[in-house]
Design a protein around this nucleic acid. Structure first.
Lengths: 199, 199
DNA sequence: ATGTCAATTGACATGATGTCAAGTGCGTGC
DNA sequence: GCACGCACTTGACATCATGTCAATTGACAT
């Protein structure tokens, strides 16, 4: 563990994440990242072929160190459908602020860089699966509101939980993170459940 | 009215809108717009100082020719709160696909160009006012769900009606435009109204 | 004729990405 | 000790879009 050399790659990823989290709305350039990582701009290209490549790697790296998948999977342990729904919203909702910086950067490239778009869609499909699983749990408990098919319910939940919505609510609308979680949970129950949940 | 010269400006705007509507996800360059308008790239700068400037003007132009404000204002004529809510969602929901191309372009600049961001926020504030008015109408009729303050209800409705959500539902989720309108209306009623609306 | 004004052409600066070539410094194997 | 590979550096360069500037053209108006 005497750090031979290739932790540079990780240094770059960390630098990128720090910058992106620092000010998600400012364009973070390759040279900024390099500077922060303490290497030359060109050296970054020894580790990543692209800006997109780097950003994607950063997302993966972030997912790894925050263990999202584990967090999200944990919501599977909930007994009832509604509990599972809540657990999923809490897990994902708590994760959004952590990934927001990178997400923002990746989303900005989506239209110009195909690979970035695919990578982002991949991540979002994972979230969608979580939504679908929560909906399935509701359906199993015969608690899914009759006016939606499972697909529709999944679409709605998935859309509700989008990063952009989080951005708008916590940003433009000044909601706190806890407000966000609570409100979205209430909203989801209200929209997806067939009976009044707790009142 | 023998068209002295300055319909060029409008030609540019039309060209920009056509290109943006044609393929909203491809970057539309100044030279593309110029070519389509039948003038030189540099000539565009005789009419607009910026790409942002042009895009903003295009939004305004589009708003004018589609008469959104009139459409949205029309929802004021609805008698009951719920009718007003429906009318507003229909009007705005029908408008989104028309503005989607430009909106996309403007949103993409939001982070790099301050003026573009402001212009977009302005438009969105107008929508927000519509949301607030609909919520106020519900409140007046004592039909606003007790679990939300007027502000929260407005925030939710406004977020629900975002261009990004429309994009996700009609794009990624393959909803038809009519599905979109109907589902969102149902959703909004379910979330905002205090009593079951029609069943 | 003359002036104005829209538009044209061509050249150029800027700023970011990405590539390439030559060089430096360090550790390892022989 | 020496040579080699390897990560990295420096500097130059291509590309591409935006935006600017200067000189020119062509039409229309007085």
């Amino acid at each position: 563990m005497s750090s031979p050399q290739p932790d540079t790659r990780n240094r770059i990823l960390k630098a990128a994440l720090e910058l992106l989290e620092g000010n998600p709305h400012k364009e973070t350039r390759m040279s900024d990242i390099a500077k922060r990582a303490g290497i030359s701009r060109q050296a970054v290209y020894l580790h990543f072929t692209n800006r997109a490549d780097l950003l994607i790697a950063a997302t993966v790296y972030l997912d790894e160190i925050t263990e999202v998948d584990a967090q999200l999977a944990q919501s599977r342990s909930a007994k009832t459908g509604p509990e599972r729904l809540d657990a999923f919203i809490e897990a994902w909702g708590a994760h959004i602020p952590r990934i927001y910086g990178v997400a923002q950067a990746l989303l900005a490239m989506k239209d110009t860089d195909e690979a970035a778009g695919l990578a982002w869609n991949n991540r979002m499909q994972a979230v969608r699966h979580g939504c679908a699983a929560a909906v399935a749990a509701l359906e199993r408990d015969h608690l899914l509101a009759a006016d939606h098919s499972a697909k529709q319910a999944t679409d709605i939940l998935w859309t509700l939980l989008s990063v952009r919505n989080w951005e708008q609510l916590t940003g433009d609308c000044d909601w706190s993170q806890t407000d966000y979680i609570e409100q979205i949970k209430a909203l989801a129950r209200r929209v997806l459940l067939t009976a009044p949940p707790n009142g």
